[in-house]
């Protein structure tokens, strides 16, 4: 109730209206917006130019996966600017972004859209907004922890973990492919490690202390995600 405006509630459609045709009420009240959101995202790496977006849609048109997104990248930029925090952070757009940088290269205003998407991914994890069963966010988290602990990424164990947590059926489905790779020496179940694991961990800890920001890795959302 705190987020929803009182007005919004009183205008809600009753079930009778909903039954006739599928009607969705769409209106946004200023009190529901997060005004500080855009500054936060803009401050993140390379995000400073997003205020200059002219909504031309080049990013959406250049994006190879925009037609699967619930909001196109252009819409996301506008929603960030206007404080539609919840919609943005729970959207599929952020997790569909494949980081191919086509949008960043084509943007006529030099907005680093891929980096804005990274900032949104981080916010989504930090604020516990990310879709819990989405393999993309789980993969990012698992990857993060694997590298944190071992210094290297081991594709085999990484994928197995991910499938176990999201959709064990997929693991079964991809078994044949995994076997083919294994036969050819292209995948292993061994966990790769660097020699100086201790010093790497210290290094990452030190960056965290020095930058004096909230320990994101210890956020409850992340802990839950990385515990197998």
């Amino acid at each position: 109730m705190d987020k929803k405006s009182v007005f919004a509630e009183s205008f809600a459609l009753d079930n009778a209206a909903k039954d006739i045709v599928e009607i969705r009420r769409r209106i946004k009240y200023e009190s529901e917006l997060d005004k500080g959101f855009r500054d936060k995202i803009a401050k993140s790496a390379h995000g400073e130019k997003l205020y200059g977006c002219i909504q031309c849609g080049t990013c959406s048109a250049a994006c190879p996966v925009s037609h699967y997104m619930d909001y196109t990248p252009r819409k996301i930029i506008q929603m960030v600017r206007e404080g539609f925090k919840e919609e943005v952070l729970t959207s599929s757009t952020v997790w569909l972004c494949a980081s191919c940088y086509a949008c960043s290269v084509e943007c006529p205003k030099g907005i680093k859209i891929t980096d804005v998407m990274y900032a949104l991914k981080r916010e989504s994890i930090l604020g516990n907004y990310y879709p819990k069963k989405s393999p993309a966010s789980i993969l990012a988290n698992n990857f993060f922890n694997q590298v944190l602990n071992n210094g290297r990424n081991s594709e085999g164990p990484l994928l197995i973990k991910m499938y176990l947590k999201t959709n064990p059926f997929m693991l079964f489905k991809n078994m044949a492919l995994g076997f083919k790779l294994w036969v050819r020496g292209r995948i292993s179940l061994k966990t790769e490690k660097i020699k100086d694991k201790k010093s790497l961990k210290r290094l990452l800890q030190s960056v965290e202390d020095k930058s004096n920001y909230k320990a994101k890795v210890h956020s409850p959302a992340l802990k839950e995600a990385s515990a197998v």
Binding site: C56, G57, T58, S60, A61, A62, E106, P108
Partner: peptide
Amino acid sequence: VRGRVSEVTDWALVPEEENKLTIRVEDT
């Protein structure tokens, strides 16, 4: 159509695009 074109290409994804130039754009 309000949108800045990202590319003009000659590859076809659907039959109507064969032997044509395809303009990819977001109808914003």
